[in-house]
Design a protein around this nucleic acid. Structure first.
Lengths: 102, 102
DNA sequence: TCCTTAGGTAAACTTTCTTTTACCCACTAT
DNA sequence: ATAGTGGGTAAAAGAAAGTTTACCTAAGGA
């Protein structure tokens, strides 16, 4: 039971959101702080945290914490990745479907 | 106002669903009828129609209608496509964000 | 002391997506 | 006539996302 379709769909789901794409774009090749991201994208604190969590759990974004004058400051950076949806993955899904038919 | 992030996210959203990925997998290099899809994926009629509509509107799936003994039968086939999310598109989104800052 | 800032959580609300139920039409076969 | 099939819609129920409001901790500076 590899659940290819479900797994791949949930990976795509993480990317299928404009706010998250913008966060990844801003943190591309450049570390950004939460404050910076919140200001540029006009996001509330809990909202940024929620989006950032999905991105880091999926491995698209990395986080580094640093203590600046007693306060913890977090820096985000986009990881190198490339997710493609095309014939290749569809063939895997098809195989799985044919297998599950026994 | 190109709205790259929004547009790209909605394209990904169409693919970010296991049922739709399975439909695309089944129709890869092989025409399938609605009946076949419904049976293999255990979908109700309105549900298959809803998923298929999203796929065809986005251009991932094509539909051909044929009249067999007075009844209209529809055949679906997956179009050749490749949607990738990586540095390239993120750079476009970043540019857009920087432009909108004026 | 009190206010501010950085990080965070929990609960509630809203919106969007997925899925089901109940119907409709047209044509075929019994 | 009526039961069955293929395509379809509309409405509503259910589930999952996205977003807000209110609140908590800990440390720094006025």
């Amino acid at each position: 039971m590899s659940e290819t379709a479900e797994e791949f769909a949930s990976l795509l789901k993480v990317l299928a959101n404009p706010v998250r794409l913008k966060i990844l774009a801003l943190c591309l090749n450049k570390e950004r702080t939460s404050k910076e991201l919140r200001k540029k994208l006009r996001l509330s604190k809990p909202l940024l945290i929620a989006h950032v969590r999905k991105l880091t759990s999926a491995g698209f974004l990395s986080c580094r914490a640093e203590v600046v004058k007693g306060r913890v400051v977090k820096y985000y950076r986009t990881e190198r990745f490339e997710v493609c949806c095309g014939e290749e993955i569809l063939k895997d899904i098809l195989e799985e479907l044919e297998d599950s038919e026994k």
